[in-house]
Amino acid sequence: MDPYIEILNLSKHYGQIRAVDDLSMKVLPGDIYGFLGPNGSGKSTTIRMMLSLIRPTSGQILLFGQDLAKDRYKTLSRLGALVEKPDFYNYLSARKNLEILGKLSSISNLKHRVDEVLELVGLLPRASSTVRTYSLGMKQRLGIAQSLLHYPDLIILDEPTNGLDPQGQKEIRDLVKSLNQDKNITILISSHILFEIEQIANRMIIIDKGKALVEGNVQELVNSQDRQVAFILGDTVAGLTLLNETAWAGRIIKSNQERIYFKINKDEIPELNAFLVEHKMQIFAVEPVRSLEEFFLQITEDEKVS
């Protein structure tokens, strides 16, 4: 089966600035594909090119096996998208907004479909309210609703949890998972938060400065890297004294009054935990500490070495 998205050597230059630089990637049917990169890494520019909002400087975009540049109508009719902020006609109700967009996609039985997607994202009770009265979280959900209107096979969500509180972020993640599992929709989701992608995606690409750093299975990629873990012990000083007499000392990155930070791989975590328990240390918590920057640094270091 053709990849739903296949990007080949895609570039976008603004004068001397290379927003996207020779990027290639593939999204397969059934994927929740994480598109990860720091702010300004070229994610949104790439997504806009996929949606024909921006013209590439060079390269090719194939959607559902068709060249986007040659067959825009056919490809876009199978694709839904929420690009960056969820902007709507604020002076219209959610229902009217969706009806306008539905008409543009020539959806039959539109009123029923609008109610269906509003129900799916939990906005049916507020369907008649003007969008200007919506919170950001509601707008994000409405954004997802509009992307689903025309029964797409693939939806592209550009940072859909931006600006949401943790509860809102979780709701969006749950919604994305259920769309993929229950509705069989392939999803490309961009984010600058590694944790978020780790929670929902099965495959991912990491880009920086418009270039692909790594692409592959999320769990394999994440687990192949050493991770930082913080242990919160009942007595940090005693714990440090104990550890400094062992080989674990070499794995300590830093410590403070509350936490001792280690750089260890996934399999070593229970080992270290067992060691501390054996020596009667009280363990209050084990916290993963992994920012995207640290993950990037590791990957770029690995790239340099290889």
Binding site: L51, S52, L53, R72, Y73, K74, L76, S77, L79, A81, V83, E84, K85, D87, F88, Y89, N90, L101, L104, S105, S106, Q146
Partner: peptide, 11 residues
């Protein structure tokens, strides 16, 4: 208002 992102991604 950013709504080109909505309408120009339609066929």
């Amino acid at each position: 208002s950013g709504t080109f992102r909505l309408i120009l991604t339609r066929p």
